[in-house]
Design a protein around this nucleic acid. Structure first.
Lengths: 252, 252
DNA sequence: GTAGACCCTGACGTAACGTCAGGGTCAAGG
DNA sequence: CCTTGACCCTGACGTTACGTCAGGGTCTAC
């Protein structure tokens, strides 16, 4: 089961090449491959594709879309709500543009020349400009965000899968310690915390111990991040935070 | 008088580079240059830019836009009416997309997976696909149209100015003969008609005598083309047609 | 009359695919 | 069981619509 590229392509009115491209850049890699190497898209993949297409319609670059959707704090519901708002805005903007066309029609028919400023009003406040900041506020906005943006821009499909694998490895190891009843200030937990820090440092932005501690606090306080750990093991976010703080203390 | 690139850019919310680009490809060359070489955009240029931006918003490629607007039969009023229709269609499509987002929201909140077909309906019938044909019917649609498309695709700014110059030269010469009272079957008129045919042959598509005669008829019957000649001299369209027919007869 | 803001023309870079080329895969039918 | 036509794969280069310098003139305001 699962649809082939061609089927998905005609379903979503995109080209096969587009799906290949999205796979190449790691934006949408089908969850399955046949033994012959054929891509097979499942329901989840289709849902992801739909998201991508909404963002694309709104003028987001593929790189931005990838960054938003790969973000550990990405939330589908919230994204959909934002997309709804932005699509409505765009609809309103289109309305203005229609008015502008009608004004131009009236003016041309009447032989009048209308004010230059009015002619281009509708082209002004475009979606990306207006909402990019919102997306940033919501999904980024930290001081190190710019650096992270810059680096992740070039990441390939393989990079993303490795990032995911490395992250999950640490999470699993940390959860295992929790299961064993190992306290969060145990050296083994601290080592894992350090590894976690180095991963961020390596993949996203220079992550000092201070920043790492800040991150740890956010893991507990911000439900978007917390969920990412809580879904592995209840209480893991808090455990991580403690391990991170102990590790920072040890490093002094 | 006339605005500089920077002024137009901020007015229309496009980059300076975009205006340079449009100039390079001959899509929008400002009607004036300062002695220092500065571009100066007048009211007509702004109106053209607005047209271009409407077409662009509708998903037309710059090459297509150039071809539409350089067409001798291009009519601003009609273009505006078409744009209005297309913008309204796009608005409706956006409405469907909003519905799709809301459906996705409901499904996600309710934990349901919805039908794959419904998910992508809104992405289907896109403007360019749907209306490209209309534009073709209206502005092209002749048998030789494809060839014309293919060739004009690569034309640069210089090409277009030369095409325009050559065309106007023939028109002016033809009008001069008319003014002198020279009959339309005079050899001089036939020579000009032949030159006219060769110009089309050279720049747009292989133009046989038969096709040329057909064109001549259209110049009289189709007001879009007729206007292009009538504005040079009243009666020129008819005069051209006669000269073209006589020339075709002579060539036999 | 000179500084700072703005403009010019190349020329190379980039994003998001389009478009082959060369070669496997797969389900239906003989 | 094997073939055949429709479909898929991975490179790799092409295209569109600009972005982004670099190196150098222009213009106006103090």
């Amino acid at each position: 089961m699962g649809l082939t590229v061609g089927e998905v392509a005609s379903l979503a009115s995109v080209s096969v090449r587009t799906l290949h491209h999205y796979d190449d850049i790691g934006l949408l890699s089908p969850s399955e491959r046949s033994e012959g190497g054929y891509r097979h898209y499942g329901d989840d993949d289709l849902a992801t594709l739909q998201q991508v297409l909404f963002f694309r319609e709104l003028g987001f670059g593929l790189g931005d879309i990838a960054r938003i959707m790969h973000d550990p704090s990405f939330d589908r519901l919230e994204a959909l709500r934002m997309q709804r708002r932005m699509l409505k805005d765009k609809s309103a903007q289109l309305g203005h543009m229609i008015e502008a066309v009608e004004a131009a029609l009236d003016a041309t028919e009447g032989g009048v020349t209308l004010d230059a400023k009015d002619m281009f009003e509708a082209f002004g406040d475009f979606d990306p400009k207006k909402h990019e900041k919102e997306a940033e506020d919501r999904w980024g906005g930290t001081p190190a965000y710019a650096e992270s943006m810059r680096r992740t821009k070039r990441y390939t499909k393989e990079d993303w899968t490795q990032i995911k694998a490395e992250g999950e490895a640490v999470n699993a190891a940390m959860a295992a310690l929790m299961d064993e009843g190992v306290p969060s200030d145990d050296p083994r937990a601290l080592d894992l915390a350090e590894e976690h820090r180095l991963q961020i440092d390596k993949w996203f932005y220079p992550c000092s111990q201070e920043i790492h501690v800040g991150l740890g606090q956010m893991y507990v306080m911000d439900p978007r991040f917390a969920q990412n750990y809580e879904k592995v093991r209840v209480g893991l976010a808090q455990y991580m935070r403690e391990a991170i703080e102990a590790n920072a203390e040890r490093a002094k």
